[in-house]
Write a protein that binds this DNA or RNA. Structure first.
Length: 595
RNA sequence: GGGGGUGUAGCUCAGUUGGUUAGAGCGAUCGCCUGUCACGCGAUAGGUCGAGGGUUCGAGUCCCUUCACUCCCGCCA
């Protein structure tokens, strides 16, 4: 028999009345009546109320013992009288009359209580993560994460994916995020890098003749954190398939995500697959972002032409448009009766966001004519008003916000404003998971800072044009078989059909200024591998942390991570990063340059 | 690297136009209490008001600098 317990803390019921049992767990809560003491004993499974009277030799000891101390309780299961039952508790019909105890581990005074749902500062939670994780909500989030991982594994295996592990110490590569470097003792002056993702390895796996691969892979990127992005490290469901086109990947992934979100989504609806496919271009036009929240019904409309025409006399906009700017309309249904403050507040919000403000127009029907209202309405002719209403597909019940700026800025800000207005008007239905694919990403983009063409996404993606036509095409017009999976405004995954033809890879890299020899040098393993018979292949890598975050209905990734780092990429519990000894440095041939 | 927010007891927070000795709840300690389940009641301890500087007769409160945390921008193929 187990030394510590005969039952766990959620097991005992009326069936066990009269049994002599042992429980072990944390003192969750004490209620001290002076001559009678109630102890809620908690373990991973639940809570059981234990009771002891002052006649008992252990009474004084238990009375003094601090919450969160771990004890072993031996005693009898007794029925609670009707009026003292606790229906909230699974074990609430019984209690344990304490006969004997053993203190297994005594707790000091707590920096934060486990009991209750109070919020606590995050640095304290991270420093004492082991206490934070005892709290109900965190404990459940982490269990959810475990269940999600198991489910994903099961689904992947059912779909004939094999789970492999790939190296953690690998080579630094020039593109992408900043690498974490690990000095090599055996090779002074040389470094390993932690993988930003197992990208090259998974392609090698395909080239090695395995048909489908997956891994719940740690990815290391030395970049700054966000609420939905851990600094330092995160996990991806890395997957790759041989002999597939884009649609084959979608067909495998869609049911897995649908089932996953139905199973763990706490009753929320999930849109049926196939998920909508939205081109990158269309997504920017309609939603102002490549990760649209489709629960928000607002769609942006380009109204540059209307502001350009002589029917609108708004000089500021005309001037911006003359300098190649664009005007975006944000049509919002049923808002014409909103008070002035609604529009003013959004205008103030826009200014606080760094925009010059947000113009708006409302409408009114007067003698069968629709006329514009609001500060800028006087600049519109009757014809322009009608044209606006027609272009934006709205009625006089609705209103329109305008964003006018240089194209990239205008798109970006109208997207942010779309989301803000949607939230403000509570248009976003939080009982939905709304998935879509964003497809047809451009292969390249123009880097304004560096004044040169650069990759817009993954350089290993396959361009959508034939290799023969590549050189004569405008690089900025070339699309790639590159796609993102988006849910509720979060980018859950990137993926691509890979470029498995070395000659084509050289061409692709050449456009951003990489010579053949540079590519051969930087991606030697990859080029070598592709030169001895490589299957066409593709895949993707959904972010595990974000999936769990969505399913746990949290806005912060640290709520679903066991031991996360803070925003400064510090582990407050383990105190990483830390200084190391001179001896360690010497062995690694490293000298610290003090700033 | 840049911008916003926050910082008062172990924790959550209040603190008026600058004005006496900075408060409450939870927690802690001590005492009382035999049916609670957020037990109750009483008392006690606990503060460099994040730090430094300035303005002022007087600063938790105003100004400057700085630090920590957080959110965002940059960055994250």
């Amino acid at each position: 028999m187990n030394k510590f317990r005969t039952h766990n803390c959620s097991e005992l019921t009326e069936k066990d009345i009269g049994k002599n049992i042992r429980l072990s767990g944390w003192i969750h809560r004490k209620r001290d009546h002076g001559n009678l003491l109630f102890l809620d004993i908690r373990d991973h499974f639940g809570i059981t109320q234990c009771v002891i009277e002052n006649k008992d030799k252990n009474f004084k000891i238990l009375e003094k013992l601090k919450p969160e101390s771990v004890i072993l309780v031996a005693g009898d299961v007794v029925k609670r009288s009707k009026d003292t039952e606790n229906k909230e508790l699974k074990t609430g019909l019984i209690e344990v009359a304490i006969k004997n105890i053993e203190i297994l581990s005594e707790a000091s005074e707590l920096p934060m209580p486990v009991f209750g749902e109070q919020e606590y500062p995050e640095d304290i939670r991270l420093k004492y993560r082991f206490i934070d994780l005892r709290r109900k909500e965190m404990h459940e989030n982490i269990q959810l994460r475990s269940k999600i991982l198991s489910f994903i594994r099961k689904k992947m295996l059912e779909n004939n994916f094999l789970e492999f592990q790939t190296p953690i110490l690998t080579a630094s590569s020039p593109e992408g995020a900043r690498d974490f470097l690990v000095p090599s003792r055996l090779h002074p002056g040389k470094f390993y890098a932690l993988p930003q993702a197992p990208q090259q390895f998974k392609q090698m796996v395909m080239i090695s003749g395995f048909d489908r691969y997956f891994q719940i892979a740690p990815c290391f990127r030395d970049e700054d954190g966000r609420a939905d992005r851990s600094p330092g490290e995160h996990y991806q469901l890395d997957m790759e398939m041989a002999f597939v086109e884009q649609d084959d990947v979608f067909k495998v992934v869609e049911p897995i995500f649908y089932d996953l979100f139905i199973k763990f989504g706490k009753g929320k609806k999930v849109n049926k697959h196939p998920f909508p496919r939205i081109t990158y271009k269309e997504s920017l036009e309609k939603y102002g972002t490549d990760k649209p929240d489709l629960r928000n019904p607002i769609e942006l409309v380009d109204v540059t032409k209307i502001f350009e025409s002589d029917d609108v006399k708004l000089k500021i906009f005309k001037e911006i448009i003359r300098k190649k700017g664009i005007a975006k309309a944000i049509p919002v249904k049923n808002t014409s009766s909103k008070p002035r403050s609604f529009f003013d507040n959004l205008n103030n919000w826009a200014i606080a966001e760094g925009a010059s403000g947000m113009a708006y127009i409302t409408f009114e029907k007067s003698k069968n004519k629709i006329i514009g209202k609001g500060p800028i309405s006087k600049f519109f002719s009757e014809k322009a008003i009608l044209e606006l209403i027609k272009t934006c597909k709205i009625s006089e019940q609705d209103s329109i916000f305008f964003v006018c700026n240089e194209a990239t800025e205008a798109i970006k800000f109208s997207g942010i404003a779309r989301q803000k207005i949607g939230e403000e008007l509570k248009l976003i239905d939080n009982t939905n998971f709304s998935f879509c694919w964003i497809i047809d990403y451009p292969m390249y983009q123009y880097d304004e800072k560096e004044k040169k063409i650069d990759f817009s996404h993954n350089p290993f993606s396959m361009p959508q044009i034939n290799i023969k036509d590549f050189d004569k095409s405008d690089p900025l017009k070339i699309l790639a078989y590159q796609y993102d999976l988006v849910c509720n405004g979060y980018e859950l995954s990137s993926g691509a059909i890979r470029n498995h033809i070395p000659e084509y890879l050289f061409k692709v890299f050449n456009k951003v200024g990489y010579s053949k020899s540079m590519v051969e040098k930087n991606f030697s393993g990859m080029i070598k591998a592709l030169s001895y018979g490589a299957p066409p292949h593709g895949g993707m890598a959904p972010g595990i942390d974000r999936i769990v975050m969505l399913l746990a209905d949290k806005k912060n990734i640290r709520e679903v991570t066991l031991f996360p780092m803070n925003q400064n990429a510090e582990d407050l519990l383990m105190e990483a990063p830390s200084e190391v000894t001179e001896k360690q440095l010497k062995e690694l041939n490293i000298k610290i340059i003090k700033k």
